[in-house]
């Protein structure tokens, strides 16, 4: 069965079609929510933000020119909203969250590996990456965005996208090493 493309839906939304809005929301809200949640690390805030994101989609649909995929456009809006929300949060709150997310490095390697197998350690370290690195890893691996699309969403040159991803992966290896898992790279 052929589904209506996002671009067609947005065209209908621009004309005030609420059903098209429901379809677009149903299609993308979970991934957008997860993208935002990974940035703001607070479910209630993330829920509020996705309402804001899709309200912007509703309002701005007429300006969507289809130069990029609809999801790229929506994620760019989501990122902007998430970063704006983060800027409004007290620094102390952010520090506490960052501290919680950083893998516990006080365990010796044996204890760490005993606690978690390699896959779990990897997931834990993925969550311990900085917001900048989490963002790019998620966009590439989970949201399946190309170099060009990540550049459009994050607002950085394509070359920077590649190097940022490279350093995010490098940081991930360092975090794993601190957990007692040496991947032999870099």
């Amino acid at each position: 069965m052929q589904t209506t493309s996002d671009e067609i839906l947005i065209g209908r939304i621009a004309k005030g079609d609420r059903l098209a809005m429901q379809v677009l929301y149903a299609r993308h809200h979970v991934k957008v929510f997860r993208f935002v949640l990974r940035l703001v690390r607070n479910e209630a805030t993330a829920e509020d933000l996705i309402s804001e994101v899709f309200l912007d989609v509703w309002r701005q649909a007429g300006k969507f020119e289809g130069r990029s995929a609809a999801t790229t456009w929506i994620l760019a809006i989501a990122r902007f909203k998430a970063l704006s929300a983060l800027r409004k949060r007290p620094e102390q709150e952010l520090d506490e969250e960052a501290a919680e997310a950083i893998p516990d490095q006080s365990d010796d390697p044996e204890t760490a590996t005993a606690k978690k197998d390699k896959s779990e350690a990897l997931r834990r370290c993925l969550q311990g990456l900085s917001a900048e690195h989490r963002e790019i890893v998620d966009l590439v691996y989970y949201h399946e965005k190309s170099v060009e699309e990540v550049a459009a969403i994050v607002g950085i040159p394509e070359a920077t996208v590649k190097t940022r991803m490279f350093y995010a992966r490098k940081k991930l290896s360092e975090l794993l090493k601190a957990q007692g898992i040496d991947r032999g790279w870099p």
């Binding site: 809200h29 997860r34 896959s119 993925l126 691996y141 989970y142």
Partner: peptide, 14 residues
């Protein structure tokens, strides 16, 4: 890393 990232995101709920 790809598998781990998908897992982390998929367990975030909706």
């Amino acid at each position: 890393e790809l598998g781990g990232t998908i897992h982390v995101n998929e367990t975030l709920g909706a």
